[in-house]
């Protein structure tokens, strides 16, 4: 499927070239509206956001053009005080920013690892033949179908310190002595966020991995079975290597989602500094404090981090995201 049909079945050479040219011309015509739209809604706003990060734009000056160019000051600025002290200002000297970076990385690493592990587990179960498989598959799609805002509120209620069912069950089982304020306590807020995220997105992971599993020919297992190979060995030597492409793709989609996480954290643990991610911090800076300069500097840094991550991942994982035939 490398080349499209026009190249393959061509009656005469001259006519085919003509046809191909025509096709390319109409292809450009078909693509133009989409490209213009993407330039307007994505490229231009991205460019403006990055521009803002080099200005002192605030809620008052953003529209009247009175914001001034400040270079890299929003990122890092060296100030010498009158008494000779040197002070560093800007996002890169901001403790909150580095906490947010750490929170985002920590959250992404743990959540994606757990989701991959549980997703693989669920996919292996769903790949078996058993009664009621259709129903189980439908059931695991429920968390995925629920809007994030709704799942944040549902779990917020279940994790409620006084009336929450989770504390109630844990108390009944004598696993804890007193109710835990899951979403408020600094040491449990991240756990709460992780629980909800893993619950909500494991189905997605499971479905992607299941699709990969179903492409492994059955006779591979049959052959291994006849040879009497230990099922664990089959899993690690046959299944897992064959699943690697599917898992790699699923992981990058999830990782990108995790790195930009906003709504769940904003809603579930609004007060907690221990779950503040880069997106949430940048949003606060822009919306709450009206500091478009620094807020945009943060979002630009997040954009750079994510882009670097994707490029590295594709290169290291030798990923073929395009789905085009390798040449």
């Amino acid at each position: 499927m490398t080349h499209s049909s026009a190249n393959s079945g061509s009656p005469t050479k001259g006519k085919s070239l003509n046809l191909q040219q025509k096709r390319v011309r109409s292809a450009y015509m078909f693509l133009t509206p989409m490209i213009i739209m993407l330039l307007v809604v994505a490229a231009w706003p991205l460019f403006r956001s990055i521009s803002f990060s080099f200005t002192d734009a605030s809620a008052d000056t953003i529209f009247n053009g009175q914001s001034e160019w400040v270079g890299f000051e929003n990122y890092l600025e060296r100030r010498v005080r009158s008494n000779g002290d040197i002070r560093w200002r800007g996002v890169l000297a901001d403790k909150d920013w580095w906490v947010a970076v750490w929170n985002t990385v920590r959250f992404s690493l743990i959540s994606v690892s757990l989701e991959t592990f549980f997703g693989l587990l669920v996919a292996l179960v769903l790949n078996m033949e058993f009664k009621g498989r259709g129903l189980v598959r439908a059931a695991i799609l429920i968390p995925w179908a629920i809007p994030t805002v709704v799942s944040a509120r549902m779990w917020g209620w279940m994790l409620n310190d006084q009336f929450g069912i989770i504390n109630h069950i844990l108390l009944m089982l004598h696993l804890i002595d007193s109710p835990i304020a899951w979403t408020a306590r600094p040491d449990t807020a991240m756990i709460a966020v992780l629980i909800v995220d893993v619950w909500k997105t494991t189905p997605f992971m499971a479905l992607l991995i299941l699709a990969g599993l179903q492409m492994i020919p059955r006779d591979m297992y049959e052959a291994a079975k006849i040879d009497g190979i230990n099922p664990f060995k089959v899993f690690f030597r046959v299944t897992l290597p064959l699943l690697k492409p599917a898992i790699l793709v699923a992981v990058i989609f999830r990782a990108l989602d995790a790195l930009r996480i906003f709504d769940l954290i904003y809603l579930l643990t609004p007060q907690s500094g221990s779950t503040m991610t880069m997106s949430v911090l940048s949003y606060r800076e822009i919306q709450q404090f009206g500091d478009y300069g620094e807020g945009s500097a943060m979002s630009t840094l997040l954009f750079l981090i994510i882009t670097t991550f994707v490029l590295l991942y594709i290169k290291l994982g030798k990923l073929n995201l395009g789905g085009e035939a390798r040449q």
């Binding site: 991205l46 990055i50 997106s279």
Partner: peptide
């Protein structure tokens, strides 16, 4: 594919202006 995956917050202030 890149556009579909990039963080929404990265365009927020530019989009707000637009």
């Amino acid at each position: 594919l890149g556009v579909s995956m990039f963080p929404q917050i990265a365009v927020l202030s530019g989009l707000y202006e637009l």
